[in-house]
Design a binder for these strands. Structure first.
Lengths: 203, 203
DNA sequence: GCGATTTTGGACTTGCTGGTCCATTTTTGG
DNA sequence: CCAAAAATGGACCAGCAAGTCCAAAATCGC
């Protein structure tokens, strides 16, 4: 890859990443470079021109792309969890998003292929989880500062537990096609907050 | 494969499955048939003799093997969740088991390879989740019948949420190497039960 | 003990997939 | 307008991994 990409080059590179993401969502690990080339109407030399380290490098780029989508799809709700209504809206968007996604797991497939252990891959997941959890925690703190939940609530632990519940709910949804667990996890998590309502401030 | 296996045949077949499970745990999807053969000191003809449908059939057998281990490793605690102490013991065993397992995900790797959608694979996961959740729910009912938690607790939903938290905690542990989320999920789940303590029966 | 059946060894085939290479076209910058 | 750099097309290669096959050895049932 040359030092600087032209506008055309950037467009092609982006087209390859997006196309690859699509193919990987549809076909999972079975997707081959030729499939990606066919879908993106690119040639081998283009692919290796923009991703000199080959498939792994491309997969990592796709992983970043997909990780960004995960949070973006939850906005703007995830960023404004400062009332019970906004939590409810977020919940609805989240559940709907994953029910629609069905049984494809873009990130999971990617990581098993590229190897979880590879530092690049691990960094992507870790960053995603941290950001996600931070936004949940921020929402809980917002409720707390409004006096809607008890000051005694351990926000960080509650956020970690909620995030775990979401992840597990999603992965059960992936493997069984049933969103019951995702719903149960999120709803129980929110109830946990409600149960910690700060009664001292209530009228 | 002949209609009936001799004792020797069964032993070989089992040896292949266990060896394959080991290799897959170590190498993930990168594991090849030749790796498995080397590890199990078996030949190609043996492998295809006992698994005529090839790699997929073997992977499915390994998946069954691993799924059985998941629950077995939690026993006898998981089967006797009838006091707060037993819940705590189960929690410790569970966390320890997955911390020791580290970042290998035997089942996850298997399913992505064999294809989640394949009915055989889906049946294995679904059955595992159902049994697991049933045992959690049974434990909650045991607490309830002893008057330790409120009769108002929605046991099935609480069990679903707890299971989701465990799954998510484990998968975050896999990808980040950090067991914080698993601990938070399980502990929060148990606290959720404690919070539903049946005060009407307390002295 | 003996024929039938099962189990085993391992060479060989085949198809595919990631990756290389070079020639050609297009774009850029001055 | 032109040389240098970037972008593109696509044939070609090499390696590997799944799967096939046949013959030999071990074992079983009687």
């Amino acid at each position: 890859m040359p030092d600087t990409l032209t506008a055309k080059g950037r467009a092609t590179r982006a087209r390859i990443i997006e196309g690859a993401a699509g193919i990987l969502r549809e076909q999972g690990p079975a997707a081959t470079l030729d499939d990606i080339l066919a879908r993106t109407r690119a040639s081998k030399s283009q692919l290796f021109h923009y991703f000199p380290d080959g498939k792994d490098q491309l997969l990592l780029a796709v992983a970043r792309f997909e990780a960004d989508r995960v949070l973006a799809d939850q906005q703007p709700h995830l960023g404004r969890l400062d009332s019970w209504e906004s939590w409810q809206q977020w919940r609805d968007v989240l559940v709907e998003r994953y029910e629609r996604q069905g049984d494809t797991c873009p990130l999971g497939a990617l990581f098993l292929q590229v190897g979880r252990r590879r530092p690049g891959a691990r960094a992507i997941v870790t960053a995603l989880m941290r950001q996600w959890q931070d936004q949940l925690a921020a929402g809980m703190r917002a409720l707390r500062s409004k006096g809607l939940v008890s000051p005694a609530l351990d926000v960080d632990r509650a956020a970690a537990a909620l995030l775990a519940g979401i992840q597990g709910g999603v992965s059960i949804l992936m493997s069984t096609g049933d969103s019951t667990h995702l719903r149960a996890a999120v709803d129980t998590g929110i109830e946990h907050l409600r149960a910690a309502t700060d009664r001292s401030r209530l009228p």
